[in-house]
Amino acid sequence: MSEQAKPNGFDIYEVFSQRTPTSSFVHQFSLLAPNHEVAMSMARENFLRRDSVVNIWVVKRDDIYVCPPEEREFLERLDNKAYRETKGYGDLQSKWRAHRERYEAEHSNNQ
């Protein structure tokens, strides 16, 4: 990230945590520490006093390459990509139903 202070010479560490082995890591907050080890020794108690966690990452903010503010506009995209999402396939249920009903109708006629 671009704003980098050296308060008391300490660095900023971003803290991430994982709630269960199958959940993703989530960003919590940041703290000031002289190095990774000290940052880790304080991370859980500062941000996760009431949450259960199975793992923690501390990442020096300097080491994170952040999308620059002026480029964030390029993160926007048109809402025309329904073909990538389940909402783009909303007709499937009714088609399957129609096939089942036709099939069942044919079979009942044959009996």
Partner: peptide, 11 residues
């Protein structure tokens, strides 16, 4: 000595 440590020590 450090605010973050204060919180950790209290736990």
């Amino acid at each position: 000595p450090h605010i973050e440590e204060d919180v950790a020590f209290s736990s």
